[in-house]
Design a protein around this nucleic acid. Structure first.
Lengths: 111, 111
DNA sequence: GTCTCATTCAACCATTTGGTTGACTCTTTG
DNA sequence: CAAAGAGTCAACCAAATGGTTGAATGAGAC
């Protein structure tokens, strides 16, 4: 469990990977399409996706020659439970979340 | 904001640092006392505390010759808000959290 | 069967990370 | 004032991270 949190939090610590998760929140995507908005190589994105998969944050399924990436929010649950222990966060503030997502743009996530 | 999440999640990705946060959940502690249960050097713990401070997860206050470490759950709020957007986590399950904390022991967190 | 597209692999590189040890700076105490 | 305690700094090291490029693999399309 401890190890799982290590890799989940480490996966979330990268802005490119968080941006990918936000994109997958909209819809499932092929690897090439995930890579398209970023300025880095496809191989780099492939590595990021491997990290997200290892963390259990996404699942990848190969259909034909394209590999589909799909959000799997289950891994976030453990992390969320851990965090909820620190301070009584009020019920989800969706307005704040949307404002946040706007600031979390892809352009800002290119290291 | 994005940068802030980077360092918050990165700080949480280390089991030693998460163990420290759990300890501080109980009570404020001096640096030396924080270090006591761990098998690593005081300097290493000092570095971990610097990371936690930079992330805004703790605050440190020097009184006399001892530096007190105090949990500051505010930084977790941004991270929590971000995560809540992925999947509708049910209301805080405190039982699960307590079970989790039991498994998150210090002995497991020594790399 | 060959070309092309989607993706990964392998080797490499620079930077960051997590740890060590020993010297150093304050602050308190005797 | 001198000694001891609390904590950080500096230099160093090994391993992990995030990126690159070029070759390789595998599946469709023509």
């Amino acid at each position: 469990m401890t190890q799982r949190l290590d890799i989940v939090f480490a996966a979330l610590a990268d802005p490119t990977r968080r941006a990918i998760l936000s994109m997958l929140l909209e819809d499932d995507m092929a690897v090439t399409d995930v890579a398209e908005p970023f300025e880095m190589s496809l191989a780099a994105i492939s590595k990021h996706l491997a990290v997200l998969t290892k963390a259990g944050l996404i699942v990848q399924e190969k259909r034909g020659r394209v590999k589909w990436c799909k959000l799997d929010p289950q891994a976030l649950r453990a992390a969320s439970i851990w965090m909820q222990g620190f301070g009584q966060f009020e019920a989800v503030n969706l307005d704040a979340f949307e404002r946040f997502l706007e600031s979390e743009t892809i352009s800002q996530s290119t290291n």
